[in-house]
Protein backbone atom coordinates (compact mmCIF):
# COMPACT_ATOMS: atom_id res chain seq x y z
CA UNK A 1 0.00 0.00 0.00
CA UNK A 2 2.79 2.37 0.94
CA UNK A 3 4.69 1.44 -2.20
CA UNK A 4 1.64 2.20 -4.34
CA UNK A 5 1.20 5.55 -2.61
CA UNK A 6 4.81 6.59 -3.16
CA UNK A 7 4.63 5.44 -6.76
CA UNK A 8 1.55 7.60 -7.34
CA UNK A 9 3.23 10.54 -5.61
CA UNK A 10 6.30 10.26 -7.85
CA UNK A 11 4.14 9.91 -10.96
CA UNK A 12 2.29 13.10 -10.03
CA UNK A 13 5.54 15.06 -9.66
CA UNK A 14 6.85 13.48 -12.85
CA UNK A 15 3.75 14.58 -14.74
CA UNK A 16 4.19 18.18 -13.62
CA UNK A 17 7.87 18.08 -14.63
CA UNK A 18 6.96 16.56 -17.99
CA UNK A 19 4.47 19.39 -18.61
CA UNK A 20 7.31 21.86 -17.99
CA UNK A 21 9.60 19.97 -20.35
CA UNK A 22 6.93 20.14 -23.05
CA UNK A 23 6.85 23.93 -22.72
CA UNK A 24 10.64 24.35 -22.96
CA UNK A 25 12.02 25.83 -26.19
CA UNK A 26 13.98 23.49 -28.44
CA UNK A 27 17.47 22.91 -27.10
CA UNK A 28 20.36 24.48 -28.97
CA UNK A 29 18.24 26.95 -30.91
CA UNK A 30 20.22 30.22 -31.30
CA UNK A 31 16.96 32.17 -30.83
CA UNK A 32 16.39 30.84 -27.29
CA UNK A 33 16.08 33.47 -24.56
CA UNK A 34 19.12 32.01 -22.80
CA UNK A 35 21.20 32.66 -25.91
CA UNK A 36 19.92 36.14 -26.72
CA UNK A 37 19.76 38.22 -23.52
CA UNK A 38 23.12 38.55 -21.76
CA UNK A 39 25.23 35.97 -23.55
CA UNK A 40 26.09 37.88 -26.77
CA UNK A 41 27.69 40.56 -24.64
CA UNK A 42 29.80 38.00 -22.75
CA UNK A 43 30.90 36.31 -25.98
CA UNK A 44 31.64 39.41 -28.05
CA UNK A 45 33.11 41.68 -25.36
CA UNK A 46 34.19 39.28 -22.62
CA UNK A 47 37.66 38.50 -23.92
CA UNK A 48 38.45 42.17 -24.55
CA UNK A 49 37.00 43.50 -21.30
CA UNK A 50 38.59 40.97 -18.96
CA UNK A 51 41.75 39.80 -20.79
CA UNK A 52 40.52 36.23 -20.26
CA UNK A 53 40.21 33.94 -23.25
CA UNK A 54 38.38 31.37 -21.18
CA UNK A 55 34.94 32.94 -20.85
CA UNK A 56 33.93 30.77 -17.89
CA UNK A 57 36.89 32.10 -15.90
CA UNK A 58 36.12 35.59 -17.18
CA UNK A 59 32.61 35.40 -15.78
CA UNK A 60 33.67 33.84 -12.49
CA UNK A 61 36.51 36.24 -11.75
CA UNK A 62 35.24 39.48 -13.23
CA UNK A 63 31.56 39.78 -14.07
CA UNK A 64 30.36 37.66 -11.18
CA UNK A 65 33.17 37.81 -8.69
CA UNK A 66 30.64 38.58 -5.93
CA UNK A 67 29.21 35.11 -6.46
CA UNK A 68 32.67 33.58 -6.28
CA UNK A 69 33.31 35.44 -3.05
CA UNK A 70 30.02 34.18 -1.63
CA UNK A 71 31.06 30.69 -2.60
CA UNK A 72 34.37 31.01 -0.78
CA UNK A 73 32.35 32.12 2.27
CA UNK A 74 30.13 29.05 1.79
CA UNK A 75 32.95 26.49 1.77
CA UNK A 76 34.65 28.29 4.64
CA UNK A 77 31.40 28.05 6.61
CA UNK A 78 31.13 24.33 5.81
CA UNK A 79 34.65 23.76 7.09
CA UNK A 80 33.97 25.78 10.24
CA UNK A 81 30.78 23.79 10.88
CA UNK A 82 32.62 20.50 10.31
CA UNK A 83 35.33 21.51 12.75
CA UNK A 84 32.72 22.57 15.30
CA UNK A 85 30.88 19.23 15.03
CA UNK A 86 33.68 16.67 14.74
CA UNK A 87 36.90 18.51 15.51
CA UNK A 88 40.38 18.33 14.05
CA UNK A 89 42.21 15.05 13.56
CA UNK A 90 45.06 14.38 15.99
CA UNK A 91 48.53 13.18 15.11
CA UNK A 92 49.03 9.88 16.94
CA UNK A 93 52.45 8.93 18.22
CA UNK A 94 52.16 5.20 17.73
CA UNK A 95 51.39 4.75 14.04
CA UNK A 96 48.51 2.38 13.46
CA UNK A 97 49.41 0.16 10.50
CA UNK A 98 47.18 -0.21 7.47
CA UNK A 99 44.82 -3.16 7.41
CA UNK A 100 46.14 -4.26 4.04
CA UNK A 101 49.61 -3.16 3.03
CA UNK A 102 49.49 -1.96 -0.61
CA UNK A 103 51.94 -3.56 -3.00
CA UNK A 104 55.31 -1.86 -3.54
CA UNK A 105 54.40 -1.42 -7.21
CA UNK A 106 51.57 0.99 -6.34
CA UNK A 107 53.71 2.85 -3.82
CA UNK A 108 56.64 3.40 -6.20
CA UNK A 109 54.30 4.37 -9.06
CA UNK A 110 52.63 6.97 -6.85
CA UNK A 111 55.98 8.35 -5.67
CA UNK A 112 56.91 8.90 -9.31
CA UNK A 113 53.54 10.32 -10.33
CA UNK A 114 52.73 12.69 -7.47
CA UNK A 115 55.13 15.51 -8.56
CA UNK A 116 53.60 15.41 -12.03
CA UNK A 117 50.09 15.59 -10.55
CA UNK A 118 51.07 18.64 -8.53
CA UNK A 119 52.62 20.33 -11.58
CA UNK A 120 49.43 19.60 -13.52
CA UNK A 121 47.30 21.11 -10.73
CA UNK A 122 49.44 24.28 -10.76
CA UNK A 123 49.21 24.45 -14.56
CA UNK A 124 45.43 24.15 -14.54
CA UNK A 125 45.07 26.79 -11.83
CA UNK A 126 47.57 29.33 -13.20
CA UNK A 127 46.60 28.94 -16.83
CA UNK A 128 42.89 29.16 -16.07
CA UNK A 129 42.44 32.42 -17.94
CA UNK A 130 44.08 31.34 -21.18
CA UNK A 131 43.05 27.75 -21.64
CA UNK A 132 40.53 25.28 -20.29
CA UNK A 133 40.72 25.15 -16.52
CA UNK A 134 40.59 27.49 -13.59
CA UNK A 135 41.26 27.94 -9.92
CA UNK A 136 38.70 25.48 -8.59
CA UNK A 137 39.67 22.73 -10.98
CA UNK A 138 43.33 23.06 -10.07
CA UNK A 139 42.44 23.08 -6.39
CA UNK A 140 40.38 19.93 -6.70
CA UNK A 141 43.27 18.15 -8.47
CA UNK A 142 45.53 19.25 -5.61
CA UNK A 143 43.03 17.87 -3.08
CA UNK A 144 42.80 14.58 -4.98
CA UNK A 145 46.59 14.23 -4.82
CA UNK A 146 46.44 14.53 -1.03
CA UNK A 147 43.55 12.07 -0.85
CA UNK A 148 45.34 9.50 -3.05
CA UNK A 149 48.42 9.86 -0.87
CA UNK A 150 46.37 9.24 2.26
CA UNK A 151 44.66 6.21 0.73
CA UNK A 152 47.87 4.52 -0.38
CA UNK A 153 50.38 5.41 2.33
CA UNK A 154 47.94 5.40 5.20
CA UNK A 155 46.16 8.18 7.04
CA UNK A 156 48.80 8.61 9.76
CA UNK A 157 51.52 9.17 7.18
CA UNK A 158 49.34 11.79 5.48
CA UNK A 159 48.68 13.55 8.79
CA UNK A 160 52.42 13.59 9.47
CA UNK A 161 53.35 14.91 6.00
CA UNK A 162 50.61 17.51 5.80
CA UNK A 163 49.56 18.41 9.35
CA UNK A 164 46.74 20.68 10.40
CA UNK A 165 49.18 23.41 11.43
CA UNK A 166 50.24 23.75 7.80
CA UNK A 167 46.69 23.74 6.47
CA UNK A 168 45.01 26.13 8.87
CA UNK A 169 46.65 29.20 7.33
CA UNK A 170 45.27 28.53 3.84
CA UNK A 171 41.84 27.60 5.18
CA UNK A 172 41.48 30.91 6.95
CA UNK A 173 42.99 32.85 4.06
CA UNK A 174 40.14 32.16 1.62
CA UNK A 175 37.65 34.90 2.35
CA UNK A 176 40.12 37.47 3.65
CA UNK A 177 42.27 37.25 0.53
CA UNK A 178 39.32 37.81 -1.75
CA UNK A 179 38.05 40.76 0.26
CA UNK A 180 41.51 42.39 0.43
CA UNK A 181 41.87 42.14 -3.36
CA UNK A 182 38.38 43.58 -3.67
CA UNK A 183 39.24 46.50 -1.41
CA UNK A 184 42.24 47.33 -3.63
CA UNK A 185 39.90 48.69 -6.26
CA UNK A 186 38.54 51.25 -3.79
CA UNK A 187 41.91 53.02 -3.87
CA UNK A 188 41.60 53.75 -7.60
CA UNK A 189 38.06 55.02 -7.19
CA UNK A 190 36.05 51.98 -8.29
CA UNK A 191 33.46 49.84 -6.59
CA UNK A 192 34.24 46.80 -4.48
CA UNK A 193 35.87 44.03 -6.58
CA UNK A 194 35.80 46.19 -9.71
CA UNK A 195 39.16 45.40 -11.29
CA UNK A 196 38.33 47.22 -14.51
CA UNK A 197 40.04 50.46 -13.54
CA UNK A 198 43.50 48.97 -13.29
CA UNK A 199 45.75 48.86 -16.31
CA UNK A 200 46.03 45.64 -18.24
CA UNK A 201 49.26 44.27 -16.65
CA UNK A 202 48.10 44.95 -13.09
CA UNK A 203 44.78 43.33 -13.80
CA UNK A 204 46.45 40.23 -15.23
CA UNK A 205 48.42 40.01 -12.01
CA UNK A 206 45.26 40.35 -9.90
CA UNK A 207 43.46 37.71 -11.93
CA UNK A 208 46.41 35.36 -11.52
CA UNK A 209 46.41 36.05 -7.79
CA UNK A 210 42.71 35.30 -7.58
CA UNK A 211 43.13 32.03 -9.47
CA UNK A 212 45.98 30.87 -7.26
CA UNK A 213 44.17 31.92 -4.09
CA UNK A 214 40.94 30.19 -5.09
CA UNK A 215 42.84 27.05 -6.11
CA UNK A 216 44.89 26.77 -2.93
CA UNK A 217 42.06 27.53 -0.55
CA UNK A 218 39.41 25.35 -2.17
CA UNK A 219 41.82 22.44 -2.62
CA UNK A 220 43.06 22.56 0.95
CA UNK A 221 39.54 23.01 2.32
CA UNK A 222 38.38 19.88 0.49
CA UNK A 223 41.45 17.99 1.73
CA UNK A 224 40.66 19.11 5.29
CA UNK A 225 37.08 17.91 4.96
CA UNK A 226 38.48 14.53 3.88
CA UNK A 227 40.80 14.46 6.90
CA UNK A 228 37.91 15.25 9.26
CA UNK A 229 35.74 12.49 7.79
CA UNK A 230 38.61 9.98 7.68
CA UNK A 231 39.36 10.62 11.35
CA UNK A 232 36.03 9.05 12.31
CA UNK A 233 36.98 5.72 10.73
CA UNK A 234 40.11 5.46 12.85
CA UNK A 235 38.51 6.10 16.21
Amino acid sequence: MRKLGSFLFLTLIGLFLLLTVLEMPIMGDPANPSNTVTTPRYISEGARETNCKNLVSAIMLNYRSYDTMGEMVAIFTVLAAALAILGREKAKRGLSPLKVEPSPLIKITMVIYIPFFIVFACYVAINGCYSVGGGFQGGVILASVIIIFALIFGFDEAVKKFPASKRVFFEGLAVLYFMLLGLMSLFVGGNFLNLNLFGSPVRKLFTLGLEIGIGLTSGITIASLFYILKKVERE
Binding site: S34, T39, Y42, V56, A58, M60, E71, T77, F136, S218
Partner: peptide, 21 residues
Protein backbone atom coordinates in the same frame (compact mmCIF):
# COMPACT_ATOMS: atom_id res chain seq x y z
CA UNK B 1 26.57 29.94 -23.44
CA UNK B 2 29.36 30.33 -20.82
CA UNK B 3 27.08 31.61 -18.05
CA UNK B 4 25.42 28.28 -17.05
CA UNK B 5 28.84 26.63 -17.07
CA UNK B 6 30.20 29.21 -14.63
CA UNK B 7 27.11 28.82 -12.44
CA UNK B 8 27.42 25.02 -12.48
CA UNK B 9 31.10 25.28 -11.58
CA UNK B 10 30.16 27.27 -8.49
CA UNK B 11 27.28 24.90 -7.69
CA UNK B 12 29.66 21.92 -7.86
CA UNK B 13 31.87 23.31 -5.13
CA UNK B 14 28.88 24.25 -2.99
CA UNK B 15 27.56 20.72 -3.61
CA UNK B 16 30.78 19.25 -2.24
CA UNK B 17 30.30 21.40 0.84
CA UNK B 18 26.70 20.40 1.44
CA UNK B 19 27.52 16.71 0.93
CA UNK B 20 30.41 16.91 3.37
CA UNK B 21 28.28 18.69 5.96
Amino acid sequence: NPLPQAVVLMALVVGVGTTAL
